[in-house]
């Protein structure tokens, strides 16, 4: 197991460096420069380029950048004078993390419940209703859903604030718009996994022991159905990250996603690269955690190294 984890860590670092290099060179191909403003004279532009190291050869810039990345130094923002990218990420990540965690939690719980109900009440009205909800959640883009929520819940009913980030009630609408996709995906997977598990012999065996029906579902059904679900949590986390780009913009939430979009609009290379790297790092970490988690939940995988062949 230790060897497995170590080798996985090695791959993680390799992947990360690859992504870092790719972002750098992609950034080089972007047209324009942060300082090609008509109001700046050529001399001023030269000074600025010099100050931020943009006059050096590309290869030089690349190796400096890689070296910096490895020690966690992501450079200084072009847009906000003198503020380092790590500071910006640090300031913004809290809000995004809260939003993401709330959406993930809500999506998992609701989606899981919907899926379980649909499976247990297979081919009944409840099953169909749950699946219609799931299909809607998958097919409505989050920006449309966010807009609808803003209009109905925020403007027409005036139950909740439409934008900004000044307390828990401000987070409700963005959380719901982000969670819809997670919930729908989980619900669909949970339903099919549950149906599969409920048809297994050990479920019949548990019934034959005289165990109460809901207890059978809880103790034997859900855990086994969850094992495959864990694998899709990784990709879902990524979809949440990209989801925040749009949703934070719509709700004017001062998170990392909003910053990212603004940085692209202003050609703020260091921030774009920094945030991209940060997202990739998160993604790689999530996949790693999911793999380890998989082994913990499923004893067959945990012991496959030294167990019976």
């Amino acid at each position: 197991m230790t060897r497995y984890i170590l080798s996985r860590l090695g791959y993680m670092i390799f992947t990360f460096l690859l992504i870092a290099s790719l972002t750098f060179f992609l950034m080089q191909t972007l047209p324009g420069s942060p300082f090609n403003d008509e109001r700046l004279s050529e001399a001023q532009e030269k000074i600025l380029n010099q100050r931020y190291g943009l006059d050096e050869p590309v290869a030089m810039q690349y190796f400096k950048y890689l070296g910096n990345v490895l020690v966690g130094e992501l450079g200084v923002s072009f847009q906000f004078d003198g503020r380092s990218v790590t500071t910006i990420i640090g300031e913004r990540i809290g809000v995004s993390a809260i939003l993401g965690a709330q959406a993930m939690g809500l999506g998992l719980v609701l989606g899981g419940l919907l899926g379980i109900i649909a499976a247990v009440r297979h081919n009944t009205f409840m099953d169909y209703t749950a699946m219609i909800i799931a299909v809607l959640g998958l097919s409505i883009p989050n920006f449309v859903f966010a807009g609808l929520l803003q209009y109905w819940v925020g403007v027409r009913l005036q139950w909740l604030p439409v934008a900004f980030w000044q307390g828990f009630e401000y987070s409700i609408l963005p959380t719901i718009s982000l969670a819809a996709f997670v919930m729908a995906t989980i619900a669909r997977y949970m339903r099919s996994e549950m149906l599969d598990v409920l048809g297994q012999d050990y479920i019949t065996t548990a019934h034959a022991k005289g165990v109460d029906r809901w207890k059978v579902i809880r103790k034997h059904g859900i855990r086994n159905a969850m094992i495959p679900i864990i694998t899709i949590v990784g990709p879902l986390t990524v979809s949440l990250m990209t989801g925040t780009l749009v949703v934070e913009q719509i709700f004017s939430v001062p998170g990392l996603g909003e910053q990212f979009v603004n940085s692209i609009l202003t050609n703020d290379y260091p921030v774009i690269m920094g945030v991209t790297l940060f997202f990739s790092l998160l993604f790689i970490a999530v996949i790693f955690v999911v793999d380890i988690l998989y082994g913990i939940v499923d004893p067959r995988i945990r012991l496959s190294g030294g167990g019976r062949n």
Binding site: Y202, T205, A206, G210, V211, N224
Partner: peptide
């Protein structure tokens, strides 16, 4: 079920819950 009439199925591989220890499966009944 279980207390008066019990049943043993064909394939032991599938009639045991793979994620539960043997102990928990026996004491459950």
């Amino acid at each position: 079920r279980g207390s008066e009439i019990s049943i043993v199925f064909q394939d032991p591989m599938t009639s045991l819950n793979p994620t539960m220890t043997v102990k928990n499966q026996i004491i459950e009944g």
